[in-house]
Nucleic acid binder design. Sequence first.
DNA 1: CAGGATCCGATCGGATACTG
DNA 2: CAGTATCCGATCGGATCCTG
Lengths: 122, 122
Amino acid sequence: MDQPYDVYEERCPTRMVLDRLADKWAVLILDRLDAGPVRFNHLRRDISGISQKVLSQTLKKLERDGLVSRAAFATVPVTVEYALTPLGQTLTETVSALAHWAERNMAAVLAAQRAYDAAPRG
Amino acid sequence: MDQPYDVYEERCPTRMVLDRLADKWAVLILDRLDAGPVRFNHLRRDISGISQKVLSQTLKKLERDGLVSRAAFATVPVTVEYALTPLGQTLTETVSALAHWAERNMAAVLAAQRAYDAAPRG
DNA sequence: CAGGATCCGATCGGATACTG
DNA sequence: CAGTATCCGATCGGATCCTG
């Protein structure tokens, strides 16, 4: 255990942060914003499968955590751009590492699942 | 967009892997196992707050994904040790990077939340 | 010790309808 | 365009009891 904070303990602030990060949608949003600022509906279209409600909720949480910024422009109709904050940018390196691990190793994971499912159990 | 696979698309295998990783408990378990093999109840005690049911379920998923191995020894009573597989080990580097980011930046996140909550809204 | 089975409240998250 | 509000089924996850 080389960790200053004991992440295995409840009520550990690190856990709270981990809770936010351990969200599929948050990871996808963060990763998408890494490519630059995006408008709400654009984000909605890009991340297929996310509902408007969940996108809205997740963005609000990320904004509250200081990871994402929201900028509204008084155009008609209104334009809103979401972007990574400096803090958020320090996170994307790690987040994209996770995404890339998944990409590189999904074949191995899929194979492991097939082997597991094929094995006699019970 | 420098990704060969489009993780923003539904039914993308990478997303499925991400789904597994985007689980607080899975991250904590993986991180804990990085320190070496651990028995079931030991894991249960170490990761405070996790229920027996969820621990069991999560371990089974991780085993199916080929990230964690399960070894039973015919002692009395039976002893079961969970450990990282080689594949799982390739993941922990990334996972612990996430945990350490949370650790280093939780103060900033907490501050952002206070600022957000203090700001007049609506 | 290492779990499986069950009950059940809480939360997640999609669909739909509406608004400034 | 960028959301909010509501309904509601599905899943999550804790508590409890039981077993080899």
